[in-house]
Write a protein that binds this DNA or RNA. Structure first.
Length: 525
RNA sequence: GAGCCGCUAGCUCAGUCGGUAGAGCAACGCCCUUUUAAGGCGUGGGUCGCCGGUUCGAACCCGGCGCGGCUCACCA
């Protein structure tokens, strides 16, 4: 502590020396670091040095009594009119009209105008205030009033500089537009663009609403490993890392599914994990390498229960974030109110101009159909390795997906592409699985969980074969997970929802990067 | 990974035919006691993304590279 103090004194002494010498000699002496700075940054550093030399180092201040936020004053003006308040925030504009000035101070909620005049605050403090710069953080004490033009304002009695901004802010009217800078330096984006702040506050409300909703339905939030030797539970390539202590290669999780089901085996009955998943794949407007996903599992429930849970949970989040179940996304109105449309995958293909797969009996027939329809490009494997299920899925993606604009559940997925899902009673080729689609995009994936350990081992064996055929995203085998099923897992419904995508719809965000505070970017150098 | 587009003052943007760069905001100096994209007068500020080439001369033309955006491919 005394160390800090002496350092501070030392710094003040250096600053005093710098400020004492005349500016020309100063500039010459400062050649090097200071000189290479842009003019405005240099000016601000000099101002700071002078303050420190005068014993008024803003960075020495540890706290400020912020009694009100801008929005409280504006909304509560009737009762606050004439009362003393103290506010704090960033100086966003400064209109100097001589012996008085108008300053816009921005806090978390918005801006409020501050009216400062020498007559009220004293000549010297007023002169000091005039040396402050846009971007500086100030605390203001004063009386609430309304100007002639009707602007609710605070008439300053005292101003405190709480932090000096050494770098100028982007332009006040056009703000910060450069996408790259907005993503790399999100703090500037948050300061300058109110919409950005709104988006992230909405994101928080959405996430809270989901937790509240599930907690209110007796779910338990748990945390499952991010690091493990096997990244399974989804079709995706993982990131690889290494433990020094264990001298072991580890993967970052691509899903939480297999751990959450272990919790169900253990008897937790209703669990969820909301957090980051990591997938080492392409980056575009819908994909960030790390993204937020919630997975939840409910014992003694099936995929129909999951559908109800999903539509209600999302509709509830929409209301909490936007005040309505009806939102506009990129110019299209979307109604999230439950119940959502339900359509089997086979019916969806048929409805949107594809063939009727109910009449396709064998893989051979399906492959012929794929050739006729020109589906080869949509398939992940060579046609000869494809089953009817693979081809149905490809046909769905080609014919139906883009048409699913209003929230729609697509039901009953082929068993071949659903290795963790329980088969439909009476039809082993199909499973009790659904995905939710909005605006042609998948937002969730859910099923009646496969709990037969013997069948599960067969499915993993099948995935191993897929891997041999060149599918490096086939689900890796997880021995301990299979052992857990052997202990006995109740019939269970499970679901995963992509949180970022939900946030995108509810905030009208074009790109996933607009709903992730610090999206993954290449380093500049 | 491929194609297209962008990168000029702190920010938002101009920059013609190849002749060593401009505006507004911001900054600096001055005037102004209810302004609000305040106003008025004046001043300073540039590695034109980086490297190379063509040319007497390059922000501009050519090649390569970097970063970003979009589209496609890949992918939940």
């Amino acid at each position: 502590m005394s160390d800090d103090q002496s350092k501070q004194e030392e710094r003040a002494a250096v600053a005093a020396k710098a400020a004492a010498t005349d500016p020309a000699a100063d500039a010459a002496a400062d050649e090097g670091a200071e000189r290479s700075l842009p003019e405005q940054a240099r000016v601000r550093r000099e101002k700071l040095a002078k303050l420190q030399a005068a014993g008024k180092d803003p960075f020495a201040i540890v706290k400020y009594d912020q009694t009100h936020h801008s929005v409280e004053i504006k909304e509560g003006f009737e009762s606050l009119d004439g009362r003393e308040v103290s506010i704090a925030g960033r100086m966003m504009s400064f209109r100097d009209i001589g012996k008085a000035s108008f300053i816009d101070v921005q806090d978390r909620d918005g801006r409020i105008q501050v009216y400062a005049k020498a007559e009220n605050m004293g000549e010297e403090p007023y002169a000091a205030l005039k040396t402050y710069d846009l971007g500086d953080i100030i605390g203001v004490k004063g009386k609430v009033f309304k100007t002639r033009r009707g602007e609710i304002s605070v008439e300053v009695s005292e101003v405190t500089l709480l932090a000096k901004a050494l770098e100028p802010l982007p332009e006040k009217f056009h703000g910060l537009k450069d996408t790259e800078v907005r993503y790399r330096r999100r703090y500037l984006d948050l300061v300058m663009n109110r919409d950005t702040m709104d988006t992230f506050r909405k994101r928080t409300r959405i996430i809270s609403s989901i937790r509240e909703y599930l907690d209110g339905r007796d779910f338990i939030e748990v945390e499952t490993p991010i690091l493990s030797t096997i990244a399974s539970g989804a079709a995706a390539r993982p990131f690889t890392t290494k433990s020094n202590a264990l001298n072991l290669q580890l993967h970052l999780r691509i899903a939480t599914e297999l751990y959450l089901k272990r919790c169900i085996v253990g008897g937790m009955e209703r669990v969820y994990d909301m957090g980051k998943n990591f997938r080492n794949e392409g980056i575009d407007i819908r994909h960030n390498p790390e993204f937020t996903m919630i997975e939840l599992y409910q014992a003694y429930a099936d995929y129909n229960d999951m559908m109800e849970l999903c539509e209600n949970l999302v509709a509830n989040a929409a209301v909490k974030a936007t005040g309505s179940t009806k939102v506009t996304y990129q110019g299209t109105e979307i109604e999230f109110k439950a119940p959502w449309r339900r359509l089997t995958m086979i019916d969806a293909v048929k409805t949107y101009g594809g063939p009727d797969f109910a009449n396709v009996k064998t893989d051979e027939e399906a492959r012929k159909l794929a050739t006729e329809l020109g589906l080869e490009d949509e398939l992940k494997k060579k046609l000869k390795d494809c089953t009817k299920g693979d081809i149905l899925n490809a046909a769905f993606e080609k014919f139906a997906e883009e048409h699913l604009v209003q929230p729609t559940f697509i039901l009953d997925y082929p068993t071949d592409i659903s290795p963790l899902t329980k088969q439909k009673p009476g039809d082993p080729t199909m499973t009790e699985r659904f995905e939710g689609f909005v605006y042609g995009r998948e937002i969730c994936n859910a099923y009646s969980e496969l709990n037969d350990p013997i069948v599960q081992r067969d499915r993993f064996a099948q995935q191993a074969k897929e891997r041999e055929l060149g599918d490096d995203e086939a689900y890796p085998f997880d021995e301990d997970f299979c052992s857990s099923l052997e202990v006995g897992m109740p019939p269970t419904g499970g679901m995963g929802i992509g949180i970022d995508r939900i946030v995108m719809f509810l905030t009208d965000a074009y790109s996933i990067r607009d709903v992730i505070l610090f999206p993954t970017m290449k380093p500049t150098e």
